[in-house]
Amino acid sequence: MERIPVLKLDQFLLVTIQVELHDQLALTLQDDLTTMVSRHSSRGVLIDISALDIVDSFIGRTLAHIAALSRILDAATVLVGMRPAVAITMVELGLTLPGVSTALNVERGMTLLREAVGNEHDDEDDAE
């Protein structure tokens, strides 16, 4: 079956969507990510969508679901690299993805994730 590769990097999961995301593929990605977050106790998920030229309501909803599921499993989600035209179209469509963190590129996205996890570590240190 066709699926999008998910890379594991320490405590984070990395996904770069390079192909057209059709409905079934998006659902498979959602399942794969949820399974992997749970199996590896990942603390963050980074999804690079810079290659996507459209995000319609189905894909948008799937991305929001991924973020919500990860949050329940105690992982932060960052969406990076959305193109301007895609962003304008999503807003016009009524999809603003509240609750999903965003960043301009993979580098900034990783910084965001590290900050999110790092802050918690500080708290733990304080507690110990």
Binding site: D53, I54, V55, R83, A85, I88, T89, E92, L93
Partner: peptide, 8 residues
Amino acid sequence: VEQTKLVT
């Protein structure tokens, strides 16, 4: 933008 809107 117009192209993206139309395809979407």
